[in-house]
Simulated assay, not measured.
Amino acid sequence: MARIALKVDVDTLRGTREGVPALLAMLARVRAEATFLFSLGPDHTGWALRRVFRPGFLKKVSRTSVVSNYGLRTLMYGVLLPGPDIGRKGAAEMRAARAAGHECGIHTWDHVYWQDNVRERDAAWTRRQMQSAFDRYVEIFGEAPPTHGAAGWQMNDEAFRQIDDWGMVYASDGRGTGPYIPTVDGVACRHVQMPTTLPTLDELIGVGDLTEDNVHHAVLRLSEDGRDHVFTLHTELEGGKLAPVFNRLLDGWRAQGHELVSMATLYRHIDRSALPELPVTWGAIEGRSGELILQP
Rank of each mutant, 00 (worst) to 15 (best):
V187H: 10
D11V: 04
P21W: 08
P182K: 06
M130A: 11
M194P: 00
G178Y: 02
A32L: 05
I181T: 11
R88Y: 05
M194Y: 13
K60G: 03
R175A: 11
G176E: 08
H216N: 06
V8F: 07
A99H: 10
G283F: 02
L37Q: 07
L198W: 01
G87Q: 10
G176F: 09
V245N: 01
Q256G: 02
W166M: 00
F57G: 09
A123V: 15
V207N: 06
L75A: 11
L275P: 00
A150I: 13
V230F: 03
G257Q: 04
E286I: 04
W282Q: 07
H111R: 01
H111K: 02
F53H: 12
D11R: 02
W125V: 10
V10C: 15
S262Y: 06
A151E: 12
T232C: 14
G142M: 02
S68N: 09
V67L: 13
M94G: 01
G240L: 07
E291H: 08
A188G: 05
H216P: 00
P145T: 00
A124Y: 08
L249N: 01
C189Q: 10
S262L: 13
E212T: 11
G174Y: 14
W166R: 13
Q131M: 12
L233I: 15
I285M: 14
L294T: 12
V30E: 01
L40F: 07
W47Y: 10
A255S: 13
F53Y: 11
Y267N: 08
A218M: 02
P279D: 07
P276N: 07
S62G: 09
D164C: 12
W125D: 01
L260V: 09
R248W: 04
G178H: 12
G257W: 00
Q131D: 15
E277C: 15
D202E: 14
R50I: 06
M94R: 04
R121S: 13
F36M: 01
R221K: 15
E33K: 11
T35R: 05
H258C: 14
A99R: 13
L260G: 04
V30C: 09
H111N: 13
A34W: 01
S289Q: 09
C189F: 03
Q115S: 11
